[in-house]
Amino acid sequence: MEKEKIILFDLDGTLIDSEEAIYESCCVACEKNALKIPALEEVQETIGHTLSDMFLHFGASREKLGICIEVYRHHYKGICLEKTKMLPKATDSILLANEFAYLGVVTTKTARFSRAILEHLGILGYFQTIVGIEDVEFPKPHQEPVLKAIARMGASLSNAFMIGDTILDIQSAISAGISPIGVKTGYGNIQAMQAICENIFDDSLEAVGFIKSV
Rank of each mutant, 00 (worst) to 15 (best):
L95R: 12
T185E: 03
P141D: 04
L8S: 05
T91Q: 08
Y23V: 12
K36T: 13
G125W: 01
L205H: 02
Q143H: 06
T185R: 05
R62W: 07
R62I: 11
L40S: 09
E42Q: 14
A60W: 08
G188W: 02
S93T: 01
K83G: 06
A29V: 06
L87V: 01
A39M: 14
T129R: 07
N199F: 14
D169S: 10
S175C: 04
E82A: 13
G104C: 05
I133V: 07
S93K: 03
T129K: 05
T166Y: 10
E4G: 08
M153R: 09
L81E: 09
L205A: 02
A176W: 05
A207H: 08
A155H: 04
S213L: 11
R62S: 11
G182F: 06
D10C: 11
P145S: 10
C26A: 15
K85D: 09
E144D: 15
I178E: 07
V71T: 14
G186R: 10
T166A: 09
H74A: 14
E63K: 12
H74S: 14
I130L: 14
D135T: 09
S179N: 10
L118H: 01
V105S: 00
E31N: 12
L65S: 03
A111E: 15
H120Q: 02
I130A: 05
L147W: 08
E144W: 11
S158P: 00
G209V: 02
E82L: 11
S114N: 03
A60M: 09
I79Y: 03
C80S: 07
I22R: 01
L65M: 09
T185N: 04
D169V: 12
V105L: 00
K36M: 12
C80H: 12
D17L: 00
L96T: 07
L95S: 06
I37D: 05
L56T: 10
E20W: 03
C27Q: 11
L96R: 11
M153Q: 08
E99G: 00
M1R: 06
L118F: 01
L168Y: 15
L56M: 12
F9N: 02
G125S: 07
R73V: 06
L35W: 07
G132L: 09
P38G: 08
G122D: 01
N159K: 15
M1N: 09
I174R: 11
P141M: 07
V146D: 02
K85E: 10
E24H: 08
E99A: 01
P38T: 07
D92K: 15
E134D: 15
A195Q: 13
L147Q: 12
I16P: 03
I22P: 06
S179T: 15
K109W: 05
G78K: 13
E4N: 13
Y187S: 12
A173E: 11
Q194I: 02
A151E: 12
T91V: 09
F113A: 02
D203G: 02
V71P: 00
R112E: 14
R115G: 09
I133N: 00
E31I: 10
F210S: 06
T46H: 00
D92H: 13
A116P: 00
L205P: 00
G164V: 09
D203S: 01
G66P: 00
V28A: 10
L95E: 13
